[in-house]
Design a protein around this nucleic acid. Structure first.
Lengths: 213, 213
DNA sequence: TAGATTGTTAATCGATTAACAATC
DNA sequence: TAGATTGTTAATCGATTAACAATC
């Protein structure tokens, strides 16, 4: 079972969405690597390499079975497993993420939100009542939570991270705008909005230069 | 003036934050490439390459002047220019992004929010009153807006994109979970939460496998 | 069969790392 | 001067693309 790198994961997700969106309402059963490649804007060899890394076999002159490709991507990326997650920090960003309906379809089940602000505790956000953050450790143990979504202010993020990891969380998805250090057996991903902004601003600048030449 | 790729931009941002956060309260003036490299977890040659791509010169036995590095990164990534942006879609995610204070420090100035929901129009979000979306085109022209932040439902995103581009927007930062097609002279970036989730889930899976071996 | 598409090996490309002379 | 650190060239590595035989 080959390991997938990040670029491959992103491409697989694109294939998945392409098949779901654009081809679900055609009556075809199969799709060729060239067809996927054209819309995703990658090389068709790349598509075949990626699919074969999942163990998928295509059929010469026909292509790959769409339903099979979809299911295999779901399984391999973990969308078919159920992952229990909590959100810590029920501000605007935490609230938005905590009530993001689409996650459920991808195997992520947000089961609670926590905050330390007495004004937020007790509020209803999405399907959940905001709970006091001192209850978070007990909650993690009682409900066997696997993922923590952090949307707390940058200056408390590391501290919160330490607490929830100690309570047993195995993965942190960090939306606080700071870098969190974690033990190496913990999965972590920083979803840094400023990183996205930096790329946006730079490509705007490049466009301007291109136009003025 | 060398072109920067995405990976380089992300590293530069890390250098910037590292210098701001960890070194601002030391009394040193300079920092060595090795020192930055250690905390960012990249090769020190890489740091020197990146900095030299910005035209920065270090001093043997001393290192790089921190203030100069910071300023040069800000200038090169466009943080020192002022970019006017609007948010279309004042739901939870749009509201969170539209009132994200840190953007201002990086040259992004959100000056208005729009929605088509009568219940949201007139609401105060952050510093702005939500305006009806039919006013968005006039607003873009009147205020010389450069960037559009899209947080509308997936099924209307392409349509909204078309409208705001026609009105003169040069850049789209898309938070709707769909892929938007734009003319090639428009800068676009998809901030796909599901892409982040897919990577998280996959690395959780890998951790589990590693532990069970 | 003929021809489109797969699957895979080899070639290319770009980015990262190693080596080391130049320099303050 | 001696030695730490830069700046740059060369080597390595991995990912992408091209070429093409295998196959249905």
């Amino acid at each position: 079972m080959e390991n997938l790198n990040k670029a491959t994961i992103q491409r697989l997700l694109l294939y998945y969405h392409y098949i779901s969106d654009h081809l679900a309402h055609t009556d075809g059963v199969s799709v060729s690597s060239a067809e996927i490649a054209r819309l995703i804007d990658v090389d068709d060899t790349q598509v075949r390499k990626d699919l074969s890394a999942l163990g998928l076999k295509g059929c010469p002159r026909v292509g790959f079975k769409m339903a099979e490709v979809k299911q295999t991507i779901r399984i391999r990326l973990g969308f078919n497993d159920c992952h229990k997650a909590i959100v810590v920090g029920a501000g605007k960003l935490g609230g938005a993420i905590g009530s993001y309906k689409e996650f459920f379809d991808y195997g992520l089940n947000v089961i609670a939100l926590f905050d330390n602000d007495p004004n937020k505790i007790g509020l209803m956000i999405g399907d959940h009542v905001v709970q006091p953050v001192d209850k978070v450790e007990t909650f993690i143990r009682d409900h066997d939570v696997q993922m923590g979504i952090l949307a707390v202010p940058a200056d408390t993020a590391q501290d919160v991270a330490r607490k929830v990891i100690q309570a047993g969380l195995k993965a942190l998805w960090v939306f606080s705008s700071t870098h969190i250090e974690v033990p190496e057996n913990i999965a972590v991903r920083h979803e840094h909005l400023l990183g996205g902004l930096a790329e946006m601003l730079y490509s705007m600048k490049m466009q301007t230069i291109k136009q003025s030449v």
